[in-house]
Simulated assay, not measured.
Amino acid sequence: MAEQRIQKVLADQGICSRREAERLIAAGKVKVNGRPVGLGDKMDPDYDKVSIDGKNVRIVRKRQYTYIMLHKPRGYLTTRSDDRGRKTVMDLVADVPAMLRPVGRLDKDSEGLLLMTDDGAFINLLTHPSGGVGKLYRVTVNPRATEEQVVQMASGVVLDDGVRTQPCVIHVVTDEPGRTVLEITLHEGRNRQIRRMCSAVGLQVVRLKRSAEGPVKLGMLQPGEYRELKKSEVSALRNAAQKNTRSAPVREENAPRRPGPLPRKKD
Rank of each mutant, 00 (worst) to 15 (best):
R84S: 07
R84T: 04
R84Q: 05
G85F: 00
G85H: 00
G85A: 01
G85V: 00
R86D: 00
R86S: 01
T88S: 02
T88G: 00
M90H: 06
D91R: 00
V93W: 04
A94G: 02
D95K: 07
D95T: 09
D95Q: 05
V96H: 07
A98Y: 06
A98L: 07
A98Q: 07
M99R: 14
L100F: 10
L100N: 07
V103T: 05
V103D: 04
V103Q: 14
V103G: 15
L106M: 10
D107H: 03
K108D: 00
K108W: 00
S110W: 00
E111V: 11
G112D: 08
L113C: 08
L114S: 05
L115S: 13
L115C: 14
T117M: 06
D118R: 10
G120Y: 01
G120S: 07
G120E: 01
G120C: 10
G120H: 12
A121W: 03
A121F: 01
A121I: 03
A121S: 13
F122R: 11
F122G: 10
N124R: 12
N124G: 10
L125Y: 11
L126T: 02
L126K: 08
L126W: 07
L126M: 06
H128M: 10
S130P: 09
S130Q: 10
S130M: 14
G131H: 04
V133Q: 04
K135H: 10
K135I: 06
L136Y: 14
L136Q: 12
L136G: 08
L136V: 15
Y137F: 15
Y137V: 05
R138T: 14
V139K: 08
V139L: 07
V139A: 03
V139Y: 08
T140V: 14
V141P: 05
N142I: 00
N142G: 02
P143R: 00
P143S: 03
P143E: 00
P143Q: 04
R144I: 01
A145I: 06
A145H: 03
T146S: 15
T146G: 11
T146N: 10
E147F: 05
E147L: 11
E148Y: 10
Q149W: 02
V150K: 14
V151F: 12
V151Q: 15
Q152N: 09
Q152L: 03
Q152V: 07
M153P: 09
A154M: 09
G156I: 03
V157M: 01
V158G: 08
L159Y: 11
D160M: 02
D161S: 10
G162C: 01
V163W: 10
V163H: 14
R164P: 01
R164G: 09
T165V: 08
T165K: 02
Q166T: 09
Q166H: 13
P167R: 12
C168Y: 07
C168Q: 08
V169K: 13
I170F: 06
I170C: 14
H171F: 15
H171P: 12
H171L: 15
H171V: 12
H171D: 15
H171M: 14
V172E: 12
T174N: 13
D175L: 01
E176Q: 15
P177R: 14
P177S: 13
G178T: 03
R179W: 06
T180M: 13
L182D: 13
I184W: 11
I184N: 04
H187R: 11
R190T: 09
R190L: 13
R190D: 09
R190A: 08
N191D: 01
N191M: 03
R192H: 05
Q193Y: 13
Q193D: 10
R195D: 00
